[in-house]
Design a protein around this nucleic acid. Structure first.
Lengths: 335, 335
DNA sequence: TGATCCAAGGAATAGGTTTTCCTTATCCCC
DNA sequence: GGGGATAAGGAAAACCTATTCCTTGGATCA
């Protein structure tokens, strides 16, 4: 019933506790024969060192806390996987904490984590908007992923929304489109503004601008349907639409189909998020900008490990977006 | 820089370490004045007891491991939230472990968790199919959520798929539908079979059977579109379709609309999963069966806590499904 | 006045591991 | 043969807290 300790191993092997420890960790001066005997006994007894005791002694726990505000939603999950991926192999375990956007819950979590002597903290969010910084106490580094601290200079890792807007625009221009609209989420979202900015900048280089102007609204399919209907009415010549999310793109696609416009024949479509169930289920499957959120998580975890090792970082890093091409944007009318 | 320990508090308050501990924990015999003084010093110094040391002493760590095989996908996330919800308030922290369906990774995680002296383990999955049991070592209880151990009698918590099929059927019958089809995922999925069974049993009680037979296929929108087309061709009189997932239901809806059938006027639609982005984005929004996965997680966490407290459970518990009514199934032709 | 009792708080132990320092024995060389 | 170097391994401290047992001093009582 009781877990076997190094004391049991030592007794069974006929050595002292310290010697057993050295044998198992390759330290000190021991006869090869002794090392082997101890190792064999440990193996046979199924000994595994108590991490708690090690942590207490070493002054670090080889754990980190992962705090998310959005109930591990669609955006924080991939980030989390990236974090876990990057840390898991290094034998660092991750405490998950969902604050449900409640500052009080967050405070309690941070306290608990500090009491557990986590080596560091990753704070993740659903939006890249700056948020109040987390203070975990002296010596506990914090890295932000998919969000940024307000009033501090990082360290943070976010997707490059502006770049995402650029690649979408480049792709559509390259496909021969010239009258490209943009339907996206609420203007108060920093991400939406940055995507629109990157998109607009690239069009400007080609001497163009968003066809029909940038249309901010909601992140829903309904908004996609509605906005597309208006855009078609006002700018019937539109030959491509860059959408701020795959959900919006689906709504847009529905309206286009209902209006008898072929995708991509008449109008090419590019979404954002590359949310597979949405993008693949659409008719036709959606070209979409992937924010590489797992990579965001991995980079954040890397920064945290560096900080724990004594090399803290500052500033905000932007992870490039990747365009995933599918049928909704195959070369168009002139191509 | 160094975290303040109880030794610092004791010194500052002019008492011994033991006394400080008693003062802070309400133990032993101390003057009220002493307790207050210690408390005040602890507060001032920002003292929080080192959980690692407490755990080492108490023989339990107040942590549990949460193992998932499906990269925290759409099904394990809500389960996870429920678990975290039920445990978080009890000051139990959760280690997250994503095995990515790799038995070797899983083995390593279980070892690591055992070395960290977790008090228990929750194993979650993406399907309710039985899976090889996890052996965490002596004295570490395991509870399965959204999956079951093969060859052992739980303890496991899964959604009541059969009941889900029943409520869907009852709802449609109650709405006056009589020719109700069923389009669902692959037959090899236990969940799909159970939903179909519950659905069929309820229809049988009304002297009916699945209109056009149960159609197993895939979990995709494409399959929904394809199967609906065939069903309409073979059984034009179909007045309702129960779908094995919301994705399938969306595909079905697309085909129905393209065929000029009104939803719910001509054909009522019920989905499964109540996956909001899918269900709400559909035209019209989908009535859907919600598996209450958060509740599954909460129940599993409860069982684990009980097991840790010395009251192990056995068997498989089924958490009832809940029907969420939306426009796709408003009372139909005869109603 | 001496024996009891109680209040208040100190000392020590336990928990499991790692590391530093120390001891013992053997060997080599002068 | 004695001194020093070296090999091999033991003893003990350290990490931090909670608890058990013990001590001290004062008050009470006969």
């Amino acid at each position: 019933m009781r877990r076997v300790t190094i004391r049991d191993v030592a007794a069974e092997a006929g050595v002292s506790i310290g010697t057993a420890s050295k044998a198992l960790n390759g330290q000190g001066k021991l006869r090869a024969e002794t090392r082997e005997r101890v190792a064999e006994v440990a193996e046979r007894l199924g000994f595994a060192p108590n991490t708690l005791a090690q942590a207490l002694l070493a002054g670090r726990s080889f754990t980190v806390g992962l705090i998310t505000t959005d109930s591990f939603g669609r955006f924080s999950i991939p980030v989390m996987l990236g974090v876990e991926d990057a840390l898991g192999t290094g034998q660092v375990s991750v405490f998950m904490c969902d604050t449900r956007d409640d500052p009080e819950r967050e405070r309690r979590y941070v306290e608990t984590l500090a009491a557990r002597r986590v080596d560091g903290l990753i704070v993740s969010g659903r939006r890249i908007e700056p948020r109040p910084p987390v203070v975990a106490g002296p010596g506990i580094p914090v890295v932000y992923a998919m969000t940024q601290p307000v009033g501090e200079d990082g360290p943070a890792v976010v997707p490059d929304d502006e770049g995402g807007g650029r690649v979408a625009a480049e792709h559509l221009l390259h496909g021969g489109r010239r009258r490209i609209g943009h339907i996206t989420g609420p203007e108060r979202f920093l991400g939406a503004r940055m995507r629109a900015a990157g998109f607009g900048a690239t069009l400007a280089q080609a001497g163009l601008r968003a066809h029909g102007g940038v249309r901010f609204g909601e992140w829903s399919e309904r908004w996609g349907r509605e906005a597309a209907a208006r855009l078609l009415a006002e700018e019937p010549g539109t030959d491509a639409i860059f959408c701020g999310s795959d959900q919006i793109a689906r709504g847009v696609a529905d309206t286009l189909r209902a209006a008898g416009r072929a995708i991509p024949g008449d109008v090419a479509l590019v979404g954002f998020d590359n949310w597979e169930p949405m993008a693949l289920g659409a008719q036709p499957p959606l070209t979409s900008v992937d924010m590489c959120l797992e990579e965001v998580g991995r980079v954040a975890a890397g920064l945290l490990l560096a900080a724990i090792a004594g090399e803290p970082a500052r500033g905000t890093r932007r992870v490039p977006c990747r365009l995933v091409t599918r049928q909704s944007s195959r070369p168009g009318p002139t191509g």
